[in-house]
Amino acid sequence: MSWGSESYDTDDYHDNSTNKSRLTVPSGVSKVIVSGQARWDSNTSGTREILVWKNGSSAYEGRPFQHMGAQTYLTMQSFVSPVLAVSPGDYFEMVAWQDSGGSRNIESNVATWFSIQAVE
Rank of each mutant, 00 (worst) to 15 (best):
N19W: 13
N19V: 14
K20Q: 14
S21G: 10
R22T: 10
R22W: 10
L23V: 04
L23W: 05
T24I: 08
T24L: 08
T24H: 06
V25H: 10
V25Q: 10
P26R: 06
P26M: 06
G28Y: 00
G28N: 04
S30F: 11
K31P: 00
K31F: 02
V32P: 05
I33D: 04
V34Y: 03
V34M: 03
Q37T: 09
A38Q: 07
R39S: 06
R39T: 08
R39W: 05
W40Y: 11
W40L: 05
W40D: 02
D41C: 03
S42L: 11
S42W: 06
S42T: 15
N43A: 11
T44F: 12
T44D: 12
S45A: 15
S45R: 15
S45C: 10
S45T: 15
G46W: 09
T47V: 10
I50F: 08
L51P: 02
L51K: 14
V52K: 01
K54N: 03
G56I: 08
G56A: 07
S58C: 09
Y60K: 02
Y60C: 07
Y60D: 00
E61L: 13
E61A: 15
E61F: 13
G62I: 03
G62M: 04
G62V: 06
R63F: 10
R63C: 08
P64V: 07
F65G: 02
Q66I: 00
Q66C: 06
Q66A: 10
Q66L: 04
H67R: 09
H67D: 05
A70T: 09
Q71I: 04
Q71G: 03
Q71F: 08
T72P: 09
T72E: 12
Y73V: 14
T75D: 01
T75G: 02
M76S: 11
F79L: 12
V80W: 06
V80P: 00
S81E: 07
S81W: 05
S81H: 07
V86N: 02
V86L: 03
